[in-house]
């Protein structure tokens, strides 16, 4: 295996990856604690006042709240719809499945710019005022393909005799769903929800088309770029958001291990007491 003996190219690629990924984040952190509004070296000394200002900036906090609201609402909706669609596609017999799947996955292929304009026209035609609701609807549409695919992958992976076994033991369809299917796909649903949440939380294009008077965080941040003296606050917020999403990812990882750990543990060979 030559690639293992000559790590040169692979190592270089990895180094470039790390630099491009983490240096900007590091720089962001540096300037968020730098006591100056101008971005440039040398640094002017350590300060926490951008973080303090940020926490006092009502507009900024309001946009953070809007984003959280839209992200929670759209991700929950997308997860619920994606799960239902996945179960329907893999466990029920009906005609037109390929068409159904193609339509459900379409948002992956349509550029957000076009979808944004299209939704804008649609909402205008229907006399629906632009608001967090319209943004939430758009985010639900674009994150549903991801939730659908994640839950489908889990459903494909598990033994459909389990559902037959439950039925055989007298369970109705909904009892089976509640006690067998949902607990087994719960880790996938959680993963799907996290992905949907992240998609919505930093989505800019659709939000900028469909937003009403109260902007979501990305839209607000973009607006703030015009004011140089407020910019360090934006950096401080960015750091905070990073921290929160990092802990969410770690948490999700932990939860997923907790969910599957018991069933994946190898059997104890010594425990056999056959006869």
């Amino acid at each position: 295996m030559p690639s293992l003996r000559r790590p040169g190219l692979l190592g270089l690629y990895y180094a470039v990856l790390l630099v491009l990924l983490y240096v900007p984040i590091g720089v962001l952190f540096l300037f968020s604690v730098n006591d100056a509004t101008v971005f440039g070296f040398p640094l002017h000394g350590l300060t926490a006042h951008w973080y303090r200002d940020m926490l006092r900036n009502a507009e900024l906090l309001e946009s953070l709240g809007s984003s959280a609201l839209v992200a929670v609402g759209s991700s929950l909706t997308a997860t619920a719809l994606g799960t239902l669609a996945a179960i329907a596609l893999l466990r029920f017999k009906f005609g037109g499945k390929p068409g159904f799947l193609a339509v459900a996955l379409m948002p992956l292929l349509v550029p957000f710019l076009i979808l944004g304009v299209a939704l804008l026209i649609l909402f205008a035609a229907l006399d629906v005022p632009r608001s967090l609701w319209t943004v939430g609807a758009a985010h639900t549409v674009v994150s549903m393909p991801y939730t659908l695919l994640i839950v489908m992958a889990r459903l494909v992976g598990f033994d459909d005799h389990l559902e037959e076994a439950a039925q055989d033991l007298g369970a109705s369809y909904f009892y089976t769903l509640r006690r067998v299917v949902l607990p087994l796909i719960a880790p996938a649903m959680l993963a799907a929800w996290l992905v949907a949440f992240t998609i919505s939380f930093d989505e800019f294009v659709l939000a900028s088309f469909l937003i009403g008077r109260s902007p979501t965080l990305p839209v607000f941040l973009f607006g703030q770029l015009r004011f140089a003296n407020r910019f360090p606050q934006v950096l401080a917020l960015a750091m905070l958001v990073m921290l929160v999403s990092l802990s969410l990812v770690v948490l999700a990882e932990r939860l997923q291990r907790l969910g599957t750990g018991a069933s994946l543990r190898p059997p104890e060979p010594a425990a056999e007491n056959g006869s």
Binding site: D159, H161, L162, A165, A166, R179, A262, S263
Partner: peptide
Amino acid sequence: INIVFQNYALFPHL
């Protein structure tokens, strides 16, 4: 009627 499946189909989470 009850059935014992080939791969047992025990509920892994229970």
